[in-house]
Nucleic acid binder design. Structure first.
Lengths: 216, 216
DNA sequence: GTCTATAAAGAGATAGAC
DNA sequence: GTCTATCTCTTTATAGAC
């Protein structure tokens, strides 16, 4: 009773503070690289408390990973499902959606890729658990691609291409930043302007290059 | 003296066997996830021998990582440097070059990305050490892009896009295979046909869509 | 609920026989 | 060069006081 009140009076629960700290550390270091001590430090509490709340590193990690996994699949912007959306709007929504997500969580893609590599078998369960319905996104693309004179291609491949073009420059930032742009700032600038240029690149690739460019 | 002869008589040196085993394990599990015991098992030898040959896990890892790092930057197909290569040939060489590399070493990109995330500061040293000259590739692209009526874009961005389109579907295979293609085989087939479709996608994006398609 | 102290297991590294 | 046995340190996890 007393403990319940205590929890309610806090702005954020101790549990949430731990989850935030764990998320930060796991995302950055991965499961193997993360240390319970570092998570405790980040949360400003004692190591033993982590076990009190989440029993084991494995369980704490699962909490983080499941909730991270949900955010990676496009949280299905309304525009995707408007029946009359054209492919240009759909592409734009997708690119900007990912760009915004990645600004907030740049380590998310790598985090997910690594964990799925560590245990590929659990992918199916994760998808089900997260309530992800890929068919809806695919069919939204299919519908939009059937309007206008668009090049014929598998909508799934277009989706892979879009996500890849958004994600790749972010996860390779330290490498390509130095390799091609020589300094951090130039690459950050590139990532900024890229929202537009990626849209243009993709639209041209689906043969929309001669449509109005003004709305970019 | 005796030991030297012994080494020469072997088809592959013990050192090379260890390097191969270590490469396999490190690529798959990363530095943190790899275990010296697993490397020893993979090499069919004892754990202590690893230390005899390479002193520490850290040093062994560095050997592997440096040599891996070299192979990631396009090993600069001759076609890139032929003065009269058109952009279509350059794109094709790049895409097929990476496709072949990734067939042999599918875990390479993730391996490199992870390690560079673990210690971004060392990128510059690695590039220098590997003797990578990005300017040569960039200028090869620039030259090729100045022929024909190509859309104006930063050659570096085109390079990022090409590599991303090649790499992303491979490193997300377990995820996207299940999510979009529902079975392993369908995704493998997609990756096969993708060599061509990726070329087409990119060429269209640089406005080569109306040029002859027959040579694909 | 939160802490300190400590147990238990894991993993890298070394010693020393052969 | 190669092995077995062992040391040492790190890290997860628990016990128990408050």
């Amino acid at each position: 009773m007393d403990s319940l009140q205590k929890t309610e009076n806090q702005e954020v629960s101790q549990e949430q503070i731990i989850l935030d700290a764990a998320s930060k550390v796991f995302m950055r270091k991965g499961y193997e690289g993360a240390r319970m001590q570092e998570i405790a430090d980040e949360a400003g509490i004692n190591k033993a408390l982590l076990h009190y709340y989440f029993r084991s590193k494995e369980l704490l990690f699962h909490h983080i990973f499941r909730q991270s996994f949900r955010s990676f699949w496009p949280s299905i912007e309304p525009v995707l499902y408007k029946a009359d959306s054209d492919i240009r709007s759909v592409i734009k929504a997708m690119v900007y959606g990912y760009a915004n997500l990645l600004e907030k969580m740049p380590y998310l893609p790598n985090f997910i890729i690594n964990e799925i590599n560590r245990d590929p078998a659990k992918v199916a369960g994760l998808i089900q658990d997260a309530g992800i319905k890929p068919e809806m996104v695919v069919s939204a693309f299919e519908r939009a691609m059937n309007k206008g004179e668009i090049v014929r291609m598998d909508p799934r491949e277009l989706i892979v291409n879009i996500i890849g073009l958004c994600v790749f420059p972010v996860i390779t930032r330290p490498l390509l930043g130095t390799l091609l742009y020589h300094e951090k700032h130039a690459y950050e600038q590139f990532l900024q302007s890229r929202k537009e240029t990626a849209c243009e690149f993709i639209c041209r690739a689906v043969c929309l290059n001669f449509a109005a460019k003004s709305d970019f």
